Computed example of a mutant assay.
Amino acid sequence: MAGLCSKSVALDLLLLLLLVALSSFLSCSAELRRLDHPLKNDGSLSLLVIGDWGRKGAYNQSEVATQMGRIGEVLDIDFVISTGDNFYEDGLTGVDDKAFEESFTSIYTAKSLQKPWYAVLGNHDYRGNVAAQLNPILRRIDNRWICMRSFIVNAEIVEFFFVDTTPFVKKYWIDPEDDHYDWRGVAPREKYISNLLKDLHQALKESSAAWKIVVGHHTMRSVSDHGDTQELLTLLLPILKSNEVDLYINGHDHCLQHISSKDSPLQYLTSGGGSKAWRGVFTPNADKLRFFYDGQGFMSLQLTKTNANVAFYDVFGRVLYKWSMDKQLDKEM
């Protein structure tokens, strides 16, 4: 078993080296779809981040949604980011699946939340009909819904790079147990990941935004139930560090976390407390843990060209933790 694991890591490292070699020959822009989102008149941006939520209101999903609406109004948010696992347990069955309305439209009803929702797919979404979540027909049902595999949202001072992380995780391919994963449009895995990383690397390299933020479903660093995702540490993390990405935002673990990299400015932020939580697991890792809450809640992010302000809230809307970074001074506050 140890020999197989070593061979697997070696193949992943080879894939990364090939990617870096190929990227040096590229002169054209990356192929990720780009969307533009305007800033406020004062040049700022405000948003909420929620993950692992779609349970038709159960497990306090409705209560978290109520507080999101309240905080969203106070902060005058511009949009919402969903870090995946949008519909439990097995995604959507099709574009006519009532779970879309029962878990999304009928839950996030506050006026402040009637803004674009930029969403990535999680592993539970891949257990259903992935094409349904990606289908523009859902926008006719609820025009807030914007979901793609990987894409970029450009808001002038910041670019958000949304990354489809589920195909990275090998166990979903080779040992899915009783689960079925919808790999249409993704297989073969190695080619899909290679192309995605090549495009992401080029897009990050060409970005002139003051802030570079990458959003994915899976944890990169986590002290909770799922822990670190080794495939992301091997393949994705070097690209983030080499391109000076500021934040990696994810869900997957049903908690709220802030972890700082010990060898780079990169910050890991987990917002996966949209519904079912309380796993009772804590396993420290090599990086610096700044905040961990094993429960339900969500995150806010406020940005100007020089400042980032993060806050985590619990199911009652109480502020659990705040953190800020000053880009101009290039140090944490």
Rank of each mutant, 00 (worst) to 15 (best):
A2I: 11
G3A: 15
K7M: 05
S8H: 11
A10D: 04
S24K: 06
F25Y: 06
E31N: 15
L39F: 07
L39V: 05
D42Q: 05
D42N: 13
W53T: 10
R55C: 06
K56S: 14
K56T: 03
G57T: 15
N60G: 01
E63C: 00
V64P: 04
A65E: 08
T66F: 12
M68G: 02
R70V: 14
I71N: 03
G72F: 09
G72K: 10
V74D: 13
D76Y: 02
F79Y: 08
F79G: 05
I81H: 03
S82L: 07
S82R: 04
T83W: 12
G84F: 02
F87K: 01
T93W: 07
T93C: 13
K98F: 15
A99N: 12
A99L: 06
S106L: 14
I107Y: 10
P116M: 14
A119W: 02
V120M: 04
N123H: 11
N123Y: 01
D125I: 11
R127I: 01
V130K: 10
A132H: 07
Q133V: 02
Q133I: 08
P136Y: 13
I137W: 12
D142N: 13
R144Y: 09
C147H: 06
I152T: 12
V153I: 07
F161M: 05
F161G: 00
F162K: 05
D164L: 05
T166M: 10
F168Q: 00
F168V: 11
V169M: 00
K170I: 00
Y172M: 12
P176T: 12
H180E: 09
Y181P: 04
Y181R: 05
D182Y: 02
V186F: 03
V186L: 10
Y192S: 00
I193G: 09
N195A: 11
L196C: 06
A203G: 07
L204S: 04
S207I: 05
S208Q: 15
I213V: 15
G216I: 01
T219C: 09
H226V: 08
T229S: 12
E231S: 08
E231M: 06
L232I: 10
T234S: 09
I239N: 00
K241L: 01
L247V: 13
Y248Q: 00
L256A: 02
H258E: 01
S261R: 09
K262E: 09
S264F: 04
G273T: 07
G274M: 01
K276D: 11
W278L: 01
G280V: 07
N285M: 10
D294Y: 01
D294M: 01
G295C: 05
G297Y: 00
G297W: 00
T304E: 02
T304G: 02
N307P: 03
V310D: 09
V315W: 08
V319E: 15
W323S: 14
D326W: 09
K327D: 12
K327Y: 15
Q328R: 14
L329N: 15
E332C: 13
